[in-house]
Amino acid sequence: MSPSTSRRNGRWLGRALSRRRRHPMAAVAVLLVVLFACGSAYATLSPSSAPASTTTAAQTTQIEEGRQLFAIGCASCHGLNGEGQVREDGTVLGPSLVGVGAASVDFQVGTGRMPMAAPGAQAERKQPAYNEEQIAALAAYVDSFAPGPDIPDESMVNVDAEGVDVARGGVLFRTNCAQCHSATGQGGALTYGQHAPNLTGVEPKHIYEAMITGPQAMPVFNDELLGPEEKRDIIAYLKNVEDQPDPGGLGIGRAGPVSEGLWAWLVGIGGLIAFAAWVVTRSAAAKSGSWRSSS
């Protein structure tokens, strides 16, 4: 199944890309990629800011550094001051970032979702384009537009802390999250090509940030109605499930009955038919046979 699946998948993607070659936005997309590449190169090559003597001075420098990074990597869609950009036809090129807070930046940039190569249905998790310091600078800059949710500190996402209740986290997860991300956190399909991503391997901090900021199609679960302790329990449950071995053997994607059915047919029936084909043979003959009676 899987090789042919990925091949088909690849073909589909290839077709989709080549179809969009002449799309009016294609040039913009290419331009963005180039700009982004230059920005990244600049960001990597430019000397990092020296530690300042006072905290406020440090903050100012950080915001200033963030502003420079933002102007190069983000402003083309989100506007120079994060006010967002809307195309003439009314579609949003990049939403306003006023008030989204540092948490949102840390999530979007820290999981590699931003910057996007081109505006699309859904940004995917990938290798982050910026290092931690740069992400902090960007977050500080965006947070300076208007206050928003902050990046949770270490203790809020420490799943080994005293009083963390994994079982309660499980109940909360199944009530609030499993409907989209599945009971094992494997993710799932939403409408018209949107999907809830797989949560395996996502940093606790980023899970927390996703809940408080509601990235993309995901709804918000703010701290007023789903408290920090509840969030920590949910993250602890997810990490527990992720780290758990599969006691029954191969996990086959922890995806439930569809993959089990495929295995039952391919391995179960397939393997047993292979045995059956051997059962009905005779062991090696000594010499070639003959017809018992010829007419």
Partner: peptide, 15 residues
């Protein structure tokens, strides 16, 4: 016409 049953001959283990 039906040639009748085919005799595959003895197996190695038989001879």
């Amino acid at each position: 016409p039906d040639p009748g049953l085919h005799d595959p001959g003895p197996r190695l283990t038989e001879i």
